[in-house]
Each structure stands twice: as structure tokens, then as C-alpha cells.
């Protein structure tokens, strides 16, 4: 394999909302509101607080990494072998608020990036790129 060990991938979603930053901030940080659009949770807006997002398909282990009221929020997002960080950035705009969400994670060939050891995933995922490279 020729990929570097530091390579990451990320997903970026940006959207303009016709609502003020403080309102969006509440939707992003109040547990009963988070449950309305994301998943059930025990979120607390405190750095280092660990929380779990629970869906009907499984759960996501998270830890609050950054809190800057009405501007920035980041938490780790570990689920099904993927270790990633979800970062929210709110910027006031003429129409309301520009919301940017970035989820940055590691490639499957980075063993240390995967918490899947308990399922025996590491060996499997280590071979995955090789296997997928042969896809027709």
C-alpha cells in the first residue's frame, strides 16, 4: 500500500438557515432538541463530557472537544469502526446563519484509527483496501 498514514477523509455539509445563530446553537446543544433532528442523547455542553447518541440501529460514542457558544462546537464521533471528529461552525449571514458541518475521519487502513479490535475488525479492515482495489 502506498497511501500515507496521515491521510484523512472528510465530509463537509454547508447550509444557509434563515434563523439566528442563538437559535441554531440551542438546536445543536440542548438534548431534547438534538433528539428531534439527530438522535437520542445525553449531551452536556462541557468540554471532555462523554455522551452517547442512540439510534434504532446502534449508537455513537462521543466526547465534547470544543465549545464556543453560538460559534463553534466539536465532538468526537466513534461508531462501527469509524473514529472521526464532527465540527460545527456557525457564521452570522445576511439571511440568518451559515452552518458548516465537517466530519473528518481516518482511512480504514489506519489501524490505530479504528476501535474495532473487539470485533476482530482490525485485521479485516487492514486487508480491505487491498480487496477493494481488485473490484472490477
Amino acid at each position: 500500500m502506498t497511501t500515507t498514514s496521515t491521510e484523512t477523509r472528510s465530509v463537509v455539509i454547508e447550509r444557509e438557515f434563515a434563523h439566528a445563530p442563538d437559535k441554531i446553537w440551542r438546536a445543536l446543544t440542548q438534548p431534547h432538541l438534538i433528539a428531534e433532528w439527530l438522535m437520542k442523547n445525553d449531551f452536556v455542553p462541557t468540554v471532555d463530557h462523554r455522551f452517547t447518541l442512540t439510534g434504532d440501529w446502534g449508537s455513537v460514542d462521543c466526547k465534547v472537544l470544543e465549545i464556543e457558544p453560538q460559534r463553534a462546537l466539536a465532538y468526537s464521533w466513534d461508531a462501527m469502526g469509524l473514529e472521526s471528529v464532527v465540527s460545527w461552525t456557525l457564521t452570522p449571514s445576511a439571511a440568518g446563519t451559515h452552518v458548516r458541518m465537517e466530519q473528518a475521519g481516518f482511512r480504514p487502513d489506519q489501524q490505530q484509527a479504528f476501535a474495532g479490535a473487539k470485533f476482530g475488525w482490525q485485521k479485516f479492515l487492514g486487508n480491505l483496501d487491498e480487496v477493494v482495489a481488485r473490484i472490477d
Binding site: 477523509r9 472528510s10 465530509v11 455539509i13 447550509r15 438557515f17 434563523h19 437559535k23 441554531i24 438546536a27 432538541l33 428531534e36 433532528w37 439527530l38 469509524l82 452552518v99 458541518m101 466530519q103 475521519g105 480504514p108 479492515l125 480491505l128 483496501d129 477493494v132
Partner: peptide, 23 residues
């Protein structure tokens, strides 16, 4: 499994829709 970004993009787009509804 390898291209998790594609799946997560769909996931977040739909979460953003729900966030908009909530707002």
C-alpha cells in the same frame, strides 16, 4: 465500508433537513 464519506454525506444531508424542520 471504504467510502464511508458517501454514506455520511447522505446521513448528514437528511439530518440537516430535520434540523431545518425543527428550527
Amino acid at each position: 465500508l471504504v467510502d464511508w464519506t458517501r454514506q455520511m454525506t447522505e446521513f448528514w444531508e437528511s439530518r440537516f433537513d430535520d434540523l431545518d424542520d425543527l428550527l
